[in-house]
Design a protein around this nucleic acid. Structure first.
Lengths: 147, 147
DNA sequence: GCAATTTATTTTGCATGCGAAATAAATACA
DNA sequence: TGTATTTATTTCGCATGCAAAATAAATTGC
């Protein structure tokens, strides 16, 4: 296990994230619900209905092309509606459908206990450290600028 | 931002992991190197050459089918060799090729400063908390048993 | 010894995410 | 005004990862 030292955090982060995601997916899929990525989009649209692809991509830290695909699938299964922006013909605005709102409620309910589980066994101070570390990654591993 | 409270850690973990991964990929890809997932397999095989698909899947916390695919691609580009186990005809043992060993060295060198960057700005005690938290996810979000 | 079961891996089909190149609409500027 | 550039999104091809079903080689139990 000694050789792992240099990649310990990378490894733990990778595995942790994947484990959590798998767990969420399994939990939601059991009940025929929306996936984890889709839930993220629903959560955001709940607050900002009509957000554009670009806005969502930025909020979820996704490449625009990934957001297009995610939106595609969500439109296909009836959770969202695409509407061309009237003022700016390039932009696409996404709107929750009734089914989307229902899915959001369901996912919200199913995932409500999640945060408690994530913080279980750690003090508030410790969770602060964890959150600060996770946030620090965003600055440290900024996508390379291309301007 | 208030509504985000319930998913803050999920979100930070997701974004943090993806940022880090993107950064690593970009760094390695620039120099025509191996991907992040492939580097993980190389690292493991460096210590356990001849490990089976199953052993690697377990070590990297991947589904067996994902490991098959990863090995496929690595064999295809000449980093690994597949050899049927002589004693157990079901098992496949993976071996580093010379190209694989070279790629490992290169990736090792390129990623050496990574751990320092990951811990930068945090005390050893804080990093311990982070590591403990990340490890705790593995127990809390264990894949559902099916026995 | 051999049918039933277990174990290791593969195949298939899909979602997610990325980067690079292509489109299309708006804006700048000459 | 009309061309050049910028901006928003999409398309394409690919890697990664998962779950479920299929294969194939051991192993168990009788």
């Amino acid at each position: 296990m000694k050789k792992d030292i240099d990649r310990r955090l990378v490894y733990l982060l990778n595995v942790g994230q994947r484990r959590l995601n798998r767990w969420i997916e399994a939990r939601l899929a059991d009940k025929g619900m929306v996936s984890s990525a889709q839930a993220g989009a629903l959560f955001y649209l709940a607050r900002q209905d009509g957000a554009s692809i670009g806005e969502l991509a930025q909020a979820l830290d996704l490449a625009a092309s990934a957001m297009t695909g995610l939106a595609d699938r969500m439109v296909r299964i009836g959770l969202l509606e695409r509407r061309r922006d009237a003022k700016d013909g390039r932009a696409v605005r996404l709107h929750l459908t009734d089914a989307g709102r229902a899915a959001l409620q369901a996912a919200n309910a199913e995932l409500a206990p999640l945060n408690a589980r994530l913080t279980d066994g750690f003090s508030a101070a410790e969770i602060d450290v964890v959150a600060r570390w996770l946030r620090s990654l965003q600055g440290k591993f900024e996508p390379p600028r291309e301007s």
